[in-house]
Amino acid sequence: MGFFELAILEAALLGALSGIVGTIVVLRRRAFFTVALTHATFPGGVIAALLGLNILLGAAVFSIVLVGIMLVISRVDRQGSQVASGVVLTFGFALGALLQSLNRDMSVQVDTFLIGNILTVSPGDIAVTAGVLVLAVLCVLFAGKQLLFSSFDPQGYRLAGFRPVAIDLVVLGLIAATVVVSMPAVGSILAIALIAGPAVSARLIMRRIEWMIPLAVLFGLVSGVGGLWVSRVFSVAAGGGIALTACAIVMLAVAYDRVRQYRAERSANGGREA
């Protein structure tokens, strides 16, 4: 397979994975958490590159450390989860920038971490992405009901005798894994577009929750593969192309939602006048 076929495969896998995990992120309102985590993988990648390890490994280890720090800070009174995300996010970026500035002659350039490069993705990266995708599908198949219940009614979930900690850990793990595997392809900053975009569009278009994930996966696929095509045609950064395509789909979904609301209001008014 040539490098462009590999890139298409990776984009498709990532799109599907982001559709599934993104839906969970949107429903559970963990968008800022996810953004913080994506930024925090930056220093992990730099450290791994300095030590000569796989970038994925560095990002994974560092994201586990930072999730721990965030959990601690969010439990301190007068701090809360927003402050926790803010602190961890800026810490990640500052550390990455510092390490990078200390090692000017590093072979890997800074944009590799920040906006990724899907055209240089390795078969190993693709295998890991596929593995995480299988894991996410399994989680939704076997724990989908619990995921939904705990997202919409956390108190009821606890009172019904389930353990919220367990499901929280599953969700955190899935988000972190997705963020880590998407870093080589779309980078730390743009990953959130692929994660949040398709899910937001699906939510705007579909009222029924069981259709949200399939639709988000479809949008994810379109954003990934279509974005890659856009970047090739207009010769712009691939990560940027993918993120912009995801955002364009959101715009279309917003427009569709507006038109639908407008029609509904008009028909309601017409009914009253008649």
């Binding site: 992120v25 309102r29 968008a31 800022f32 900053i189 959130i192 949040a196 975009g197 995801a246 955002c247």
Partner: peptide, 8 residues
């Protein structure tokens, strides 16, 4: 999520 989309 809307903020995230605007941001990205």
């Amino acid at each position: 999520a809307a903020i995230a989309v605007v941001l990205a």
